[in-house]
């Protein structure tokens, strides 16, 4: 048998380069900005635009690890409750006289622990799905937050704590800098490391991973714990922005976060998606909300637009598949 030569280099094809979900997101992003600029004269003001990012970036921090979880083929709907619990713990500890830096440390710790619990439950009881496990912990974490603080608010944080969400470094909001740094770290982790590669593999075929010596349970626990930690980070920035906290804080965030990732092209079935898509989606939704807010469009109308955007975003890849088979049949 003649030795075959198998190519090891990827052949560059212009068609497949431009035929990517992310380009569509770029177009949508530009369209939204053009639209916003047309409906409001105040929109294209760099300072205001940068300020606008402050309103949605705390939530966006959690989209980064959520992409990891969705790529794994799992889902975590307990993140908002984790934010609430860690935020409440931080506030209560501070009000009891614990120094703020220590309270912040506890906030991160509680978040990490919540994520770790999710991960352990999922890997020890394989018959439970991620939806069920995180639905249960979502209720439990929120419940604990209510027990700790009852239906009250806690706050009166030190002045410097406000800086986290309201402060600037030069002309750039501090939180934007944090977000950019974390986004780069998470993006590299997902796409350029063996860890990320294994996560994609697990999302595609976890059984094959087990047979290939990939330590699937360990990776799953790490990813969920990391998500918990990021929920803690989000809690810090969110509490800083609000100035005080309540047990019902961040209610419904989990759906916003998952919606952003899905709009970004991350498949909820696992194994597909890119960080850059999710990041584009964050800014699309964020700026859309800001722009419509400028001309006083009610929040309800905004929800409808977001819902439509989501349906279209899930539909288009399917249409693309149909279009391709159509072309194949013709040729």
């Amino acid at each position: 048998m003649a030795q075959r030569n198998i190519l090891a280099k990827k052949q560059f094809s212009i068609k497949s380069f431009f035929f990517q979900w992310e380009w569509l997101l770029v177009i949508v992003f530009i369209l939204i900005n053009v639209m916003n600029a047309n409906i409001s004269d105040y929109y294209l003001n760099p300072t205001l635009l940068l300020d606008a990012t402050m309103t949605f970036l705390d939530k966006a921090l959690l989209v980064l690890p959520m992409v990891f979880i969705l790529v794994l083929g799992d889902i975590d709907i307990s993140v908002a409750s984790t934010i609430a619990l860690s935020s409440v713990v931080m506030a209560v500890l501070y009000n009891l006289g614990v120094p703020m830096p220590v309270a912040i440390l506890f906030c991160l710790l509680v978040g990490t622990l919540c994520g770790y619990i999710n991960g352990i439950l999922l890997t020890k009881f394989k018959e439970l799905s991620a939806v069920i496990v995180t639905l249960s912990t979502m209720i439990i974490f929120r419940g604990i937050a209510y027990i700790i603080l009852e239906d009250q608010a806690a706050g009166k944080f030190p002045k410097w704590f406000n800086f986290l969400s309201w402060g600037y470094m030069g002309k750039i909001p501090f939180i934007l800098i944090v977000f950019v740094i974390l986004a780069i770290i998470f993006g590299l982790l997902l796409h350029k490391t063996t860890f990320g590669r294994r996560i994609f593999a697990m999302g595609n075929n976890i059984e094959a991973c087990r047979f290939s010596g990939v330590q699937v349970d360990k990776i799953k626990v790490i990813v969920f714990t990391l998500t918990g930690l990021m929920a803690g980070v989000t809690a810090i920035f969110l509490t800083s922005r609000m100035g005080s906290t309540r047990p019902n804080v961040a209610m419904g965030y989990e759906l916003d976060i998952i919606a952003m990732a899905v709009l970004g092209g991350v498949s909820t079935a696992g194994g597909k998606g890119r960080m850059i898509g999710a990041i584009l989606a964050i800014f699309i939704i964020g700026f859309l909300r800001y722009g419509l807010g400028l001309i006083n469009i009610p929040a309800q109308a905004l929800l409808i637009i977001l819902g439509l955007l989501l349906i279209v975003s899930v539909m288009i890849p399917n249409l693309k598949g149909r279009f391709q088979t159509l072309r194949k049949v013709k040729s």
């Binding site: 090891a8 350029k192 490391t193 063996t194 860890f195 990320g196 590669r197 294994r198 593999a201 595609n204 075929n205 094959a208 991973c209 047979f211 290939s212 010596g213 990939v214 194994g271």
Partner: peptide
């Protein structure tokens, strides 16, 4: 044995990613 949606190259290296990476970087 396989991840059907993946290229055959990536399938092959899955058990031995450590060989084609340095300190975890692919």
């Amino acid at each position: 044995g396989l991840i059907l949606e993946w290229g055959i190259g990536r399938n092959i290296t899955l058990p031995t990613l450590d060989r084609c990476s340095t300190k975890g970087w692919m």
